[in-house]
Design a binder for these strands. Sequence first.
DNA 1: AATGCCGGGTG
DNA 2: CACCCGGCATT
Length: 368
Amino acid sequence: MLPWCQPEGGRIHFGGVPWAPGSIHCSGQVGPEELLPGQKAEDPWGLGSWDEVGDWDQSGLLQSAYIPVPKQRCPPGKAGLDEVMAAAVLTSLSTSPLILGPPSVPFSPESCCDPWKESSVGPSGSYSSSNNSGDWGWDPPSDQSSPSTPSPPLPPEAAHFLFGDPTPRKRKNSVKVMFKCLWKSCGKVLSTSSGIQKHIRTVHLGRRAEPDQSDGEEDFYYTELDINVDSLTDGLSSLTPMSPTSSVPPAFPSLDLPVPAPSETTAMPTILSSVVPTTLCHVHTDHAYQGCLTPVHSVGISDKGPQLPQPTVIRPPVPAIPSGLKPTTGIRKPRGEAKKCRKVYGMENRDMWCTACRWKKACQRFLD
DNA sequence: AATGCCGGGTG
DNA sequence: CACCCGGCATT
Ligand SMILES: [Zn+2]
């Protein structure tokens, strides 16, 4: 009687793409009411504001590291430095002498990576089949690559990347800056730093709302997001999967989409590669458990991952563990809290899940 | 009870 | 490989 147990003869595929990213319209969660009435964003460093986020569509948002220094960020004297640097980079970035192609980003982002490209793999057909220890190459345990969500007592460990241009000014009109709360189970996203600062201070830190002389702890519980807003054009098409043969009325619940995996699609030209902590894997398709799982080398530019200094193997330390005696309540994997496909689409729409989810594997679309 | 997903199958 | 699922830790 299982919903999807019907004659599996023909799956329902709407042109291959359930819904395109960037076309989703999220309403709720982030609403005007989250922003202070009169507080029209004071945007500490005049980033141009994007306040009053009624709804924002997640197109390609690239998580930028942390943003450890919100306030007092412009020391009287050397304030201009970052600014200049940033400006310089952005400039050389977006105004490459001859690359004034299409009105959008010069580095054709869309071209290859669509978050949900269900099962079409291998455009260029040559994903070097680098080893990949058989398994679904992964390293669940001991992971920390991602800005793990902090928990109350957790001492913020964010001083890693203090460099690399902390506040990439929003580009012409393709990048918006948002601030996301990293608290355990709160993915609140606000448009202004002061916004989440207050949010965190009050809601989480249980502190007072006045931004005055707060120990600035809240600064550690939010991160900045650079949302690419240039794919407003695509998508929109198959947002309503009207199956031709009227099978499985999708009618997905009017849920506010939970930030899907940050589809990193920004191909760094060159200069940029040195300014941006390439902590994210690029190409990342839904199905393709390749994307970053399999060390996709040769992506055009030999962009060696900045990580993995690994001069010597750091594996050995796994000798003494009395077989069958795992501390059942030890360092257990904290099971990410992000809503995964199953919950998001529901069992009835299993066909929309990402492949991983369908196979009961770790979700690839909504990673934690 | 529902989820997320590892580990272990199957063609 | 693509695909499925038992089973178990988590929520
Ligand atoms: Zn999924």
